[in-house]
Amino acid sequence: MYLFVSGSFALRDVKLTIPAAVERGKQAKLHCNYDMEGEPLYAVKWYKSDREFFRYTPLDTPPYKQFLTPYVHVVQNLSNGSFVVLDNVALETSGKYSCEISADAPSFFTIDASGILQVVEVPKEGPIIKGLKSRYRLNDTLKAECTSIKSHPAANLTWFVNDFQVDPVHLRRNRAHLSPDGFYSPRLGLRLLITKQLFVNGRLRIRCLASMHDIYTKSSEVSVEIEKPKYRYKTTPMPIFQWEDAQPAERYPHTTHVYPGVRSKAMSRYPHFLCYKLNNMRNRIFGNICNKT
């Protein structure tokens, strides 16, 4: 807020620099920068939500003065006319902060600047990836979910495939789970069609990154493989041919020796060569004849 009075300005370029976020339990350093243009400084006053908690007056002894404010603990020996350091910040320390610069006589100009301090609780571990399989076939749909456990506020989640950020069309943002103690566990789903171009040397790298401003960054990575197709060779059965008038196979191989029988008196009526020939042909009728007495 700028106050206009007659005459020239004795103050200008008042700026308040506040970290974008501070981790719970650590220190926060707020910087109030200004140019007095040769005018004497009367006081620097610090406020949280319009409530003064610290004052620096160089002409007073001592020059520091604190005012009791919940969740605001000033490190006095590290604070001066330009800086104020807050120790052991809590989530409740978050809020609007202002520094007010006042010039001494004769101008008595006063200018202030304001900003927001955010205290965060970072996750105790990295993000967790669930739902991935070790192998995928072409044209399969990869489905995975990344979860960051307990933070305040919710951590930002980002998917990467082979170090390239995934297009939002492949993301499924689920509602963050809020625990009874006020911490968030955000979830971000991934749906990706498996194509050959996604794989490098047969592998696909999936990474989920969880971040909170510039004070917390952790990631988890999983690699999956492409499943090679399994070829099944089909065998065609040989046709069975039925030949007409087919002859049965020989009972014995061709190397079987056939020995002629010895002619007896009962066979004297028939020539020896005839009986031998008939026995070789296995003719029952003639066999009976040959054996006839």
Rank of each mutant, 00 (worst) to 15 (best):
V74F: 06
S79Q: 07
L209P: 01
L11Q: 04
N283H: 07
I215Y: 05
F9W: 09
L3P: 05
V122K: 02
Q66K: 10
S220I: 03
L204A: 01
E100V: 13
A10H: 08
N174H: 14
K196A: 13
A105S: 13
V89P: 03
D50V: 08
D87H: 10
S6V: 10
G189W: 10
V169W: 11
H31A: 06
H152E: 07
K48C: 08
A113F: 05
R51S: 10
R205V: 03
F108I: 03
Y184V: 04
P271W: 01
K234N: 13
C290N: 01
L278E: 08
N33I: 11
T61M: 14
L142Q: 10
Y2P: 04
R282L: 05
P180K: 08
F9Y: 13
T217M: 12
T235W: 06
S94P: 04
R282K: 13
N291K: 10
Y47K: 11
F241D: 11
T110W: 08
K96F: 12
Q27P: 00
Q66T: 10
P237Y: 03
Y64P: 00
L171M: 01
K277Q: 12
K218H: 04
L11Y: 08
A103R: 04
Y216N: 04
D163V: 08
Y270V: 02
K124F: 02
G131I: 07
S79E: 00
R251A: 09
V222P: 04
R12K: 14
Y276R: 08
L59S: 15
N139E: 15
V166C: 05
R251E: 09
K292A: 15
S219A: 07
E244M: 05
I289F: 07
D140S: 12
P180D: 09
A20G: 07
D112N: 15
T236E: 08
K124L: 10
G115Q: 06
C275M: 11
A43D: 09
K130Y: 10
H177K: 11
D112E: 14
I194G: 00
N279C: 12
F273L: 12
Q118S: 12
H257I: 12
V222D: 06
L68K: 12
C99G: 04
